[in-house]
């Protein structure tokens, strides 16, 4: 081992490491310069690409007309506060729906994985539920529930458009999410269950304390992805007449004869989705890092 240098860098074990050698410093500066170069290349290619896109669009023959009806700043200014107000409703629906979807999806997944012949009808009903609601277009279910249920005129059944719309969204998304959870539960290796049972844990304890935590970890990235999808689909409650962001845009658009409010609504929905999408990316990257523990591959 080389003689201890005068400089040292951090060392938790207390042993001193000599300062980095000439060669290592050379390697580091080379890697840095490569890093800088890739940053520049990325910037340049982004610039070229977006210029081409803008030039291509603006030089289209119908551009002036399109600009007038989709990108009118005055209309945008008028629409913005109204659409934002509508978005507040979307946000509230989103939070309620997300919580319900997680709970219902998990419950359905668990009921589909219970063992034993007694539970056969439950498994069957749950399978039927996922098949039906995953297969049904959300907008059709929205019509069925939003206009069909109030038509029954039953006592105690809600007739509020927002509540009915949220119910339809929850039913469809829970069917999807339950399949994600089920895949997660089944991805946990059987030996984990065996090890837990060998320690004397019951079936239920095993599921709750050993299998589910691993399953949830495995499916966090796809779940967040479903959350991004849910975020924009809450805009569909407007078809029932609920005054959300999309509906507000529709109203302003009808009053002004201009499509700009839709662009405003679209931008706001995209902005809303960005943090969740980044969160999903981060969770995926973290899951990958954990699996390959520090390797450069």
């Amino acid at each position: 081992m080389s003689a201890p240098g005068t400089e040292v860098f951090g060392d938790a074990r207390g042993g001193l490491l000599p300062a980095p050698s000439e060669v290592e410093l050379g390697r580091r500066s080379y890697r840095r310069s490569r890093q800088r170069r890739s940053t520049w290349v990325a910037l340049l290619s982004t610039l070229v690409f977006s210029t081409l896109l803008v030039v291509g669009t603006v030089s289209a023959p119908g551009w002036p007309r399109t600009q007038q009806s989709f990108l009118d700043p005055d209309v945008a200014r008028r629409a913005f506060p109204l659409v934002l107000e509508g978005l507040w409703l979307n946000l509230r629906v989103l939070v309620v729906a997300a919580v319900c979807v997680l709970a219902l999806g998990l419950a359905v997944a668990l009921l589909r994985t219970v063992r034993g012949p007694v539970w056969a009808p439950v498994r069957f009903v749950m399978a039927l539920y996922t098949d039906v609601f995953r297969g049904m277009p959300l907008i059709v279910l929205l019509y069925i529930i939003g206009f069909g249920v109030p038509g029954l005129r039953l006592q105690g059944v809600p007739t509020d458009k927002v509540v009915l719309g949220t119910t339809a969204i929850v039913l469809v998304y829970s069917a999807y999410v339950s399949e994600v959870f089920r895949a997660g539960i089944e991805s946990v290796h059987p030996s984990q269950r065996a090890a837990a049972r060998a320690l004397g844990l019951t079936h239920r304890q095993t599921t709750r304390l050993v299998v589910l935590p691993q399953a949830v970890r495995n499916v966090t990235p796809p779940l967040l992805n479903d959350l991004v999808a849910l975020q924009k689909d809450v805009g569909l409650i407007s078809v029932l007449g609920a005054i959300d962001a999309v509906r507000q845009a529709q109203i302003v658009s009808a009053n002004t004869g201009n499509f700009t409010p839709y662009i405003v609504a679209a931008l706001l929905f995209v902005l809303l989705a960005v943090p969740t999408a980044r969160l999903a990316d981060w969770a995926t990257a973290r899951a990958r890092r954990r699996q390959q523990a520090g390797s450069v591959l």
Partner: peptide
């Protein structure tokens, strides 16, 4: 020659190889 490898830890970096020849 003089192979050094450290792993990042909470307290800084822990050397795992300290100058292998």
């Amino acid at each position: 020659r003089n192979l050094v490898k450290t792993y990042p830890t909470a307290q800084g970096s822990t050397p795992v190889l300290r100058g292998i020849d």
